[in-house]
Design a protein around this nucleic acid. Structure first.
Lengths: 299, 299
DNA sequence: CCATATCAATAGATTTAAACTATGATAAAA
DNA sequence: TTTTATCATAGTTTAAATCTATTGATATGG
């Protein structure tokens, strides 16, 4: 049977493409790593690594097996994590991934509670776009994600957290600015400012707007919600913002936030983790904390 | 880092609840296994095993970690399998699980092709009920399943194979026996013979029958399709049979098989395997063979 | 075109730990 | 009480992973 150490050596080579550096990363000498890799290749009767002078690379077989090796290493990590968790539940490291249109606006609401009520857990926060987050979750670099749920995420375990309405943002001088509610029909023929490609908020908000007959202002695409907010305040156009981004957020005076009549456009914020993740207790505790922290925010 | 050997020892203990037998299963001496388990417990600072005199059992922590250990061992197995597969694609062992209401009727159609066109693969066939099969697939004891798809199976990778109609089976003396087609309404107030609990065909066929206003003959539940067939031939009642079970199957003279007008009752036969299974090439080859083997059967 | 730096492979010694056999201890069964 | 089953302990052997030191091969720079 294969040894876990061998798999670590193999993946290290895959990462560094260099025997010496890989050996350092594994805290062994270069001859040790070279030797073990050779034995592995003999045992499998496969050439895993192409040793060109000054250019180490993996063969196709090597690539394939590195993938499998990572699976094993992930599972082994889970084992160790689970053991630690048993020793001291609700402790250890938890890497949370969030999307940029949610992180800055929800974290102030949840982190104080998480840090005080789950004090033994070290929270690491990672901000990235949905597709990157999903990859990192799968690869074991992240433990949980907080983002709007999409059907492609069925392979992960899902906890619904809350439903966040999108509200219209206009400058005070815009014709719609002084309504207390806007409707689907108000969007007709409006020019909408959007985020750049890759933000899932863009797809969601724009889906709603286009079906209402609005048009995208494609002369401009914002790189962040804050840019978008300042564009709206400068009376360049209107946009939809997630409601969390409108709570306690300046500049209140130069921008009007107007809720929609139902059916409101919304995004369904969920928490994902790998099925079979070792520290489910921590995950459930986080779910509870977040749900409590947001109750009342949307009423 | 943990060693795979340790995990094998741990799962062996979990399986046999006996150090000696577990040691035999691992091909090591009992003291070796005892010692390694002790070291493992020391390293994790957890008691994994409760050593009552003549009664070895796992602690809750042990149970939890055995689950994690099996994950690792599965992944490690996948690695080795993948390596073998690279050495010689479309070869090796493939454990196929099928349900009893499908296996005997489809295997004659597919096994000849599989054995001749994928000659380097050793096929092992396992017949069991759906729930057991799913567990065994998850545990890595089986590699692929062929059965009617249900929503709870989303966690596995799915390949649709074919749609199998269910047909009505009656004795020649039954009032419906000489129709060339039967309809949903013909089922009204009929007494239907059924399989015993646990067969998914029972749920599917009966669901259709009940919604048509048929009643179950609950004085009797058959243990196999063949029993059911002979009960029908003896004019005890009628039933629905999957169409594959009516092709080339005696006693043709004592039983009439009548198809339904559309909408026919059907079952959707799919092939499942674990996502990330090492020998996907073999799986896809099997899917192709099966699809080819059944084309024409239902036209 | 030679000198040098880089990098992986090899050789041989060392250390670690996993495995074995033999035996002891304990409690249930006879 | 004796026997049997079963796990733990002790001491030894064996296997293999690791280390340091070195070689060999190949680009690169002067």
């Amino acid at each position: 049977m294969i040894k876990i150490r061998d798999l670590e050596y193999l993946t290290a080579i895959a990462e560094y493409k260099h025997f010496g550096h890989a050996a350092d990363a594994c805290f062994v000498s270069q001859p040790t790593l070279s030797g073990q890799i050779q034995k592995l290749e003999q045992r499998l009767k496969l050439t895993l690594i192409e040793r060109q002078p000054r250019n180490v690379m993996l063969t196709p077989a090597g690539e394939k097996l590195v993938q499998q090796a990572r699976q094993v290493l992930n599972a082994a990590n889970n084992f160790e994590e689970a053991a630690k968790a048993l020793l001291d539940p609700l402790s250890g490291d938890l890497h949370i991934g969030l999307i940029p249109t949610l992180a800055p606006y929800i974290l102030p609401h949840i982190m104080p509670k998480l840090n005080s009520n789950l004090a033994k857990i070290n929270f690491y926060l990672h901000e990235n776009r949905t597709q990157d987050l999903l990859q990192q979750l799968e690869a074991g670099k992240l433990d949980i994600l907080i983002l709007p749920w999409l059907p492609e995420m069925v392979r992960f375990e899902r906890y619904d957290l809350f439903t966040e309405p999108l509200v219209m943002a206009t400058s005070p001088s815009h014709p719609l600015a002084n309504k207390t509610k806007v409707t689907f029909d108000d969007l007709h023929n409006q020019k909408i400012l959007t985020l750049e490609d890759g933000h899932c908020l863009r797809d969601q908000a724009m889906g709603y707007c286009f079906s209402a007959g609005a048009e995208e202002d494609d002369s401009f695409r914002a790189t962040s919600l804050e840019t978008l907010r300042y564009m709206v305040a400068s009376n360049i156009g209107i946009t939809l913002l997630p409601q969390l981004a409108t709570i306690n957020y300046a500049p209140q005076k130069h921008i009007h936030y107007i809720p929609f009549e139902s059916p409101q456009p919304v995004r369904e914020i969920s928490l994902l983790c790998r099925t079979g993740y070792a520290q489910m207790e921590s995950v459930r505790a986080v779910v509870n904390e977040v749900r409590q922290a947001v109750t009342g925010l949307f009423d």
